[in-house]
Simulated scan of single mutants.
Amino acid sequence: MPDGAPQPIGVDPAKTGSFRKLSADEGAVLTNRDNAENAAKAARTQLREADKTGSFRLQGKNRPHVEHETQHYKKNCKLFIGIGIAAVAIVVLIVVAMNSFFDAAQQANQGDNNQVREQEQVQANDVISYRDQNYGLVQDGDTWSLARLDDSGNVQAKLVDLNGTPVSFVHYNGAFIIPENLSGGTWDVLSYVPADGSVPSPVADADGNPVSGNGTIQSASLNGSTLSVQTDSGETDVDLG
């Protein structure tokens, strides 16, 4: 102790036991060249014993983060499930869109076919089918009539009597067009729409005058919206549009 420092009074380590000498198996062991091999053997022995008993545990940053990996796996599962649901929804939308497209195309195609059937021409003694009904021109004595027929061609109902002799039978956009030869060397074109209470009317020109002429109709042909009437006096184009 430095000179002049206060001295402990009545404290004798030898008597109080505050200080004692370490025994041979206590205290730190310093490793040097002489005991390095023994220290290495002791460490290897400890590792082998820990491996046998399974009591060896990694410490600090070497320990596996099991809980963290489990949470990460759960997050991945949720992500994969979400992606799967989205993929299924996309497939369903594509299927619905394709079905809608094909339905629209089929309806458009049916509409085109119906439009083609809306314009039809046959001989005066042939049958035209329209809206699941059969129509034809029938003769009873000297009188011709437009009639509704059954599947066998028998008359179900007479719709209208004609004034002359029909040359052709035309269906144009829901109306039956009948060019006919009249007595006295004249002709006209008759129109009839099949409906309850409907009456026949002559086809009119752009000025509202009935289409007719002198002579005898030899033939009539439908070209688009024009009915070309060929008579022994010449040709007349009748606009049906």
Rank of each mutant, 00 (worst) to 15 (best):
G84V: 03
G215K: 02
V138N: 05
W187G: 07
Q107K: 09
D34I: 00
A28C: 09
G185K: 03
G54M: 01
V91D: 05
K41E: 13
Q106C: 00
V92C: 09
V66R: 08
V189F: 12
I178F: 13
Q59F: 02
V91M: 11
I85Y: 06
G208Q: 08
W187T: 03
L149K: 03
K21T: 10
V116S: 14
R131E: 14
G224Y: 06
I90T: 06
A42T: 05
S145T: 08
G213W: 07
S233V: 00
D161L: 04
T143D: 12
V160L: 15
Y130P: 00
A104E: 04
A86P: 00
T231I: 02
Q7G: 06
R117Q: 12
G197M: 03
A204S: 08
Y135P: 00
T70H: 02
A104G: 09
E235A: 15
F56Y: 05
G185I: 03
N163Y: 08
D132G: 06
L47D: 01
Q59H: 01
M98T: 07
R44K: 12
V95F: 14
A86L: 15
V11M: 07
K41V: 11
L182G: 09
V238F: 07
R20Y: 11
S219A: 09
A175S: 14
N99F: 00
G174W: 11
V199P: 01
S233N: 08
V155W: 13
D51F: 02
S198Y: 11
F101P: 04
R20T: 14
M98E: 03
G184P: 02
K52F: 02
E180I: 04
A24M: 01
N134Q: 08
K74G: 04
Y192L: 04
A89Y: 02
P13C: 06
A195E: 15
G4D: 14
D239K: 07
P2A: 14
E49N: 14
L137R: 05
T16Q: 10
I217A: 14
V88I: 12
K74E: 05
R33E: 10
G17C: 00
A36C: 07
D34F: 13
G234R: 05
S228G: 05
Q123L: 03
E37I: 12
N38V: 07
V66I: 13
K61L: 04
N134A: 11
A89N: 03
A5E: 13
N109P: 02
L222N: 12
N214P: 04
E67L: 12
F102V: 00
N214S: 15
Q133S: 15
A36P: 01
A195D: 15
H68I: 04
A157M: 09
N134W: 08
A147D: 14
L190N: 13
A220W: 01
E118R: 12
E67G: 02
R63W: 05
V116D: 14
K158T: 10
A147F: 10
L58T: 11
Q121A: 15
F80H: 08
V127G: 03
A175R: 08
I9K: 14
H171Q: 10
P179I: 03
P200Y: 10
N181T: 12
T165P: 00
P202R: 09
D232K: 05
A87D: 04
I128N: 07
R148D: 03
L22S: 02
